[in-house]
Design a protein around this nucleic acid. Sequence first.
DNA 1: TCCCAAACTTGCGTGCCACGCAATTTTTTG
DNA 2: CAAAAAATTGCGTGGCACGCAAGTTTGGGA
Lengths: 221, 221
Amino acid sequence: MPPDELPTLTLRERKKREARRALAQAALRLTLERGLDNVRVEDIATEVGVSARTFNNYFSSKEQAVCAVVVDRHEGMREALLARPAGEPLWESVKQAVLEQYSREGEPDRAYVARIRELMGQLMLRGEFLNAHAAVERVLAETIAKRVGGVDHLLCRLMASSVESAVRVAFVNWFTTEGELLLPTLERLLDELAAGMPTLTGGTEGTPDPNTTTPLGEPLC
Amino acid sequence: MPPDELPTLTLRERKKREARRALAQAALRLTLERGLDNVRVEDIATEVGVSARTFNNYFSSKEQAVCAVVVDRHEGMREALLARPAGEPLWESVKQAVLEQYSREGEPDRAYVARIRELMGQLMLRGEFLNAHAAVERVLAETIAKRVGGVDHLLCRLMASSVESAVRVAFVNWFTTEGELLLPTLERLLDELAAGMPTLTGGTEGTPDPNTTTPLGEPLC
DNA sequence: TCCCAAACTTGCGTGCCACGCAATTTTTTG
DNA sequence: CAAAAAATTGCGTGGCACGCAAGTTTGGGA
């Protein structure tokens, strides 16, 4: 066998990755078509030509499979961040690295927006969605730590976590409204984060009239 | 019947609240004692003296019941924030309101720290934990919006979301380390957020040596 | 080239869980 | 106090996660 040039992947691992990705895609596609609880694990498995038991070797729930795309979308963030020029301000690097991930495919498909909104209503699914973001967050935190020289891991985690917050808020805003673009919103939010949200902080004119109680209802993510 | 002075709660609602709280407490207590998957829904229900079916009228999973304490702990945040003096800078108000919630019971009990760490390893439970924080986040966002006069809801959501990020990061740091206190950490993180994390942003000396790959493993929250 | 060990898949069985439904009990209200 | 509204409960159903023990595929050394 010739010495691996690019494929450190042992062909066995390629099949695993393929299977995983196929399952995730099938899960997402079927769920967007039929709605989450009209899709059984067996459906997803069959779609890919694999047993239901095997599905559970890859994912421990269908929700997890559906949300795997979130992780995929962030796959290149680590490399993107480390590839930024060394002298660049940290926030700028992070911003560009994040935006790059969401530019890769252009604006996400508007056709699915209604289904996505519907999907995010599912409580179990939101949990997995947030889990997926948490996974991304961890990698981002370590990458940031590496970039700044490993000092103060706590702050790195805070930065990663709040960046993911911005991503989620922008995403929710995107599929909640009609016509607003994702990228500009995301960029604006990241800029605000970097500056401590002066736009809000500036206006201190409080109008504390206690109507519209909002009793801890269901969040939209 | 005397005219309700304080109890707008119709006695029926009091029982509901009590039942809910009792179930949540029982769920948390049993889970900390035995570990999540040595606790069946029926155990929790029996503990409170109620049927298993009734448990599912209140919570749609045991994980949700366990994480209800998160919501409870933030219950007073809305009032705390609205009660801050009107002229106070927004970030200061938010900081004090948040810290107040966690001062209410002093530093959380160190005895359970190992169990908690173990608990947070459970993936399903993390999902619900994050869901709970998302619920809190929504209320916080609307409260902030009310405080600043309702302008720019998007930014309010961003602020709420990143504040919750700080809470989570501080919490994870608390139960991950031995001896570090929650409140000082939390205060520091909120201050950093308010200033755009200058401590990190300042040091731009990148040392991009790509070792320790960290392949998207399980996050710690 | 062949073969074995490690890794992956699969079927089966088990225990648990969420939830719809309808009957029963409890609380509210007129 | 009686009828209406709401909560609890038992039962049944469909589904899911996972342990286990085959069977099947893959990788690397002899």
